[in-house]
Simulated assay, not measured.
Amino acid sequence: MVANLMKFLLFKYRAKEMASEVEMLKKVLRDNKEHFSVVFSQASECLQLVCGVEVKEVDPREHIYIMVPTLGLTCDAMLSSGKSMPKAGLLVLVLSLIVQNGDCTPKEEEGYLEYRQVSDNDPARFEFLWGPQACTETSESEVMEDLLRVNQWFSRAFPPPSAEAVKEEERSPDPDKQPS
């Protein structure tokens, strides 16, 4: 249900259309209203993390939503066929890496980043910095807040195993290992 709702919301995003809860329930969740809040929440988080698209409620009374690029970035490269995913999620991750690594990182992305050669390196090494477009549209604090949301989501989605589970795994023999 989450994957189907994500597809539906991406379709609406590409078409620059709003989506209503009623429409999502009818077309995607087949009137499973009891699952809506959980599925909608998970689909929204995945869209933000993977695609760099936030789902925002524009009419709380009618429960109508619009999809917008994360952090207000205008970078949203998609193929003209509309079959590609929005690229802002990748950009946010690259900008987060730059912030975490002392304002530079050796990864490449277009327009929003500056590319420069690091001096005194043999062989030559290159790095990326925040470009003027990224500085205009967002800030390091907004990127760090977004990174914190991503980390919190991953912590909830993939919690560390309990101490009991770790002990149990250590006691159980590995079924893939053959006795010698």
Rank of each mutant, 00 (worst) to 15 (best):
S172A: 12
P160Y: 04
E45F: 07
V118K: 13
L71K: 05
D146I: 07
Y112G: 01
L25Y: 01
P86N: 07
D176V: 07
M24H: 00
P60W: 04
V39M: 04
V50I: 10
A19T: 08
L29Q: 08
G72P: 01
K107Q: 14
R116Q: 11
P161A: 00
R125W: 01
C135N: 15
W153A: 14
K87A: 13
L5Q: 05
P69H: 09
E110C: 12
R61V: 13
S96M: 08
D59H: 05
A134H: 02
T138R: 01
D31T: 06
A3Y: 12
S80P: 09
E34M: 08
M6N: 10
S20D: 03
V68I: 15
L129S: 07
I98N: 02
Q117H: 06
L49A: 08
V50A: 10
E127A: 10
L79I: 10
E34L: 11
F128H: 14
A134P: 04
E127M: 11
L148K: 15
C51Q: 08
K167R: 13
H35N: 15
I64T: 13
D76K: 07
S139P: 04
Y13L: 05
T138Y: 03
A15W: 03
S37K: 09
D59W: 09
A15S: 07
E140K: 15
M6K: 13
D59Q: 03
R156G: 12
I66R: 15
G131Q: 01
A88D: 02
V143C: 06
S80Y: 12
S180H: 03
E110N: 13
S119P: 12
D122A: 07
Q117Y: 06
K16E: 13
L47H: 00
D59C: 07
E169Q: 13
I98H: 02
G111I: 05
D59F: 01
N101P: 00
Y13T: 04
R149I: 05
K56Q: 14
S44N: 02
N151F: 12
P69S: 14
Q100P: 02
D103M: 11
V143S: 01
A163K: 10
P159Q: 05
C75H: 11
C135H: 12
V55E: 04
L71A: 07
P86E: 06
E170S: 13
S37C: 02
D174Q: 08
Q178G: 10
L97P: 00
L73A: 11
A88P: 02
C51Y: 10
F36R: 04
K7C: 11
V39A: 07
L25R: 09
A124D: 10
L73S: 05
S141E: 15
S84I: 01
N101Q: 12
L97Q: 12
A43H: 00
K27Q: 12
P160A: 09
E114H: 10
A165I: 06
L93W: 06
T136R: 15
V94Y: 03
N101I: 00
V118F: 02
